[in-house]
Amino acid sequence: MSAEPQKKQEETTGGPVQPGSEVNERKLVEAAQNGDQRAFGQLIRLHQKKLFRFIASLVGSTDRADDVVQEAFVRAWQNIKKFRSEYDFYPWLSTIARNLAYNELRRQEKTQSLDQMKESGFNPVDTELGPLEKMMNGEAQERFYKALWAMPVLYRSVFVLRHFENMDYAMIGSYLKIPPGTVDSRLYRARRYLLDELKDLLE
């Protein structure tokens, strides 16, 4: 490592930080780009919770979400030098994680409609949450996640991107390569399904 990056590293994370000095995320990213492992460790700790919640909602499994989040950080570190630090770090990181999550979900159903799934006798109440059950905060939350994860990926992904990442329709459409009208109709079906499943809790 050259002398210059080393100096920057000391300024950002290595040396004592004076009260009031502005050590922000960009500096952590820049330090990580210069090979500062501790700076990247701090970036992990800053973003892992949000990322885990998002990915767990998308993939519906603690183990898989854990794998995806870990792998996303590994890829981020491997490619950190290509990242342009003037942008926010989280959107870049979550894009990596989303791509990995979709890779994970590729075995799940892609064409099944909610009506067909229900007609075939599938009951989301029977979905087992496994270790995730320990994270559930009450029956309402448990029922919500059971219903969400029982939903086909086609609908779940639109719902999660809208409600957990707060993306607008254009962003969702751009990401999933579907027209905004399709985003609209899928979101409606996802919501309709949840309304039916959680009817008694919503009254």
């Binding site: 979709y102 099944q112 409609s113 990926v153 086609l154």
Partner: peptide, 23 residues
Amino acid sequence: KFEIARKSIPTPPKSEPAPTPMP
């Protein structure tokens, strides 16, 4: 469970577009 449910379905719904493309 999804696999069992899927196998019992003869055709995909006409109103639904093609499978979600990979990003």
